[in-house]
């Protein structure tokens, strides 16, 4: 990413984006290597798969957020969206006994929350961080109220398979991550909507004056962010086998960190979904490594906060150097 664009030749061997991803991959391998040196058990297949399974959940929350941020917005409500959607889905599954009702409920509630965010930003002209910050608390409050202090647990096996099952020896959440990653990648790079999202993020005025229906595209971005939060809620529920209010809130910081660490700029118009996958893996490895080094779990918020600050500083330095080189 730091390669000046002028080095970009007619047939680039590796684009700057690809180089940035490669850099992150190397960083992951280095940290993993170091941790293996500390504890050889780290590199065991089961630990690695377990870690990827954790990362996949984080990625699912961060995936829609990546799309929103690329389009020049922000969604702080993804965590509590996951909470509310998981609680509603758990109740639906518990009462009907049919997992598909849960799927329908989580997808609908996630999407509706995203839709409401988009509406508030478009119609009330609220700044995205304010609208989605309000939604964060409203959705969380709704979840607490709905659960009334209870925890719903004991999902049917057919449903838990989504979170705990294996397919071809690989945990199902990883497959879901793959599918979501591919779909998001297709949206970003193979649909006109995706290309318009990048353009909106890079220059909203120019997007408007190029005939892009900016408000409708923006609404769709927030809907997608809500939808992926709903999907994440299902995977979370299937893996934990329980829903309670408070599960999603701690995910917000790591999700933003994953997006930023993945190379998506908070200022919009650049980034990609594969970066977010790597960002999620990187964050999970860090947490995993801390556990390995016997650092208490109470440190996690601190680490997440520090990663967000470092990532935004790096983003700032890179984007400034880039605009200076131009």
């Amino acid at each position: 990413m730091t390669i000046p664009a002028t080095l970009d030749t007619r047939s680039p061997s590796l684009s700057p984006d690809a180089l940035a991803l490669l850099g992150r991959l190397i960083l992951i391998v280095l940290i993993a290597g170091a941790l293996t040196a500390v504890d050889p058990g780290f590199a065991s297949v089961s630990n690695l798969l377990n870690m990827l399974r954790q990362a996949s959940l984080l990625f699912l929350v961060a995936s829609g957020l990546t799309l929103v941020i690329i389009g020049g917005g922000l969604d702080l409500s993804v965590g509590s969206n996951l909470t509310l959607s998981a609680c509603l889905a758990a109740a639906a599954i518990k009462t009907t006994g049919n997992p598909w009702y849960g799927v329908a409920v989580a997808v609908t509630s996630g999407t509706l929350i995203g839709f409401t965010n988009g509406l508030m930003i478009n119609r009330l002209r609220l700044p995205p961080f304010l609208a989605t910050f309000g939604m964060l608390w409203v959705a969380q409050g709704a979840a607490y109220w709905f659960m009334a202090g209870q925890t719903i647990y004991g999902m049917p096996m057919s449903f838990r398979y989504f979170g705990t099952g294996f397919f071809l020896g690989v945990p199902l959440p990883i497959w879901i991550t793959l599918v979501v990653c591919v779909v998001c990648s297709i949206i970003l790079h193979r649909t006109t909507f995706g290309r318009e999202a990048y353009f909106m993020g890079a220059n909203q005025t120019a997007a408007l004056l190029s005939g892009i229906a900016v408000e409708r595209r923006r609404l769709l971005l927030y809907v997608l962010s809500g939808l992926t939060a709903g999907i994440a809620a299902l995977v979370y529920l299937a893996r934990l086998n329980a829903a309670e209010p408070g599960i999603g809130e701690p995910l917000l910081l790591p999700a933003i960190a994953a997006v930023l660490v993945g190379g998506t700029s908070l200022f919009g118009g650049s980034g990609n979904i594969v970066g977010t996958v790597l960002g999620a893996i990187l964050l999970t490895i860090i947490v995993n490594g801390l556990n390995l080094l016997n650092v208490a779990a109470t440190w996690h918020p601190f680490v997440n906060g520090a990663v967000v600050l470092i990532a935004i500083l790096a983003d700032f330095i890179v984007s400034r150097r880039r605009s200076e080189s131009g």
């Binding site: 664009a5 790079h189 193979r190 649909t191 006109t192 909507f193 995706g194 290309r195 318009e196 990048y198 353009f199 890079a202 220059n203 005025t205 120019a206 997007a207 004056l209 190029s210 005939g211 892009i212 118009g269 650049s270 880039r322 605009s323 131009g326």
Partner: peptide, 29 residues
């Protein structure tokens, strides 16, 4: 400020206003 997305490349800028027409199905090639 109003015509171009400076951080994006020529392709993204040159095709942005014609996406609806060139790729009517919504799929981008």
């Amino acid at each position: 400020r109003e015509g171009l997305a400076l951080p994006l490349d020529i392709r993204d800028n040159a095709t942005v206003a014609s996406l609806w027409r060139r790729f009517t199905s919504g799929w981008f090639s």
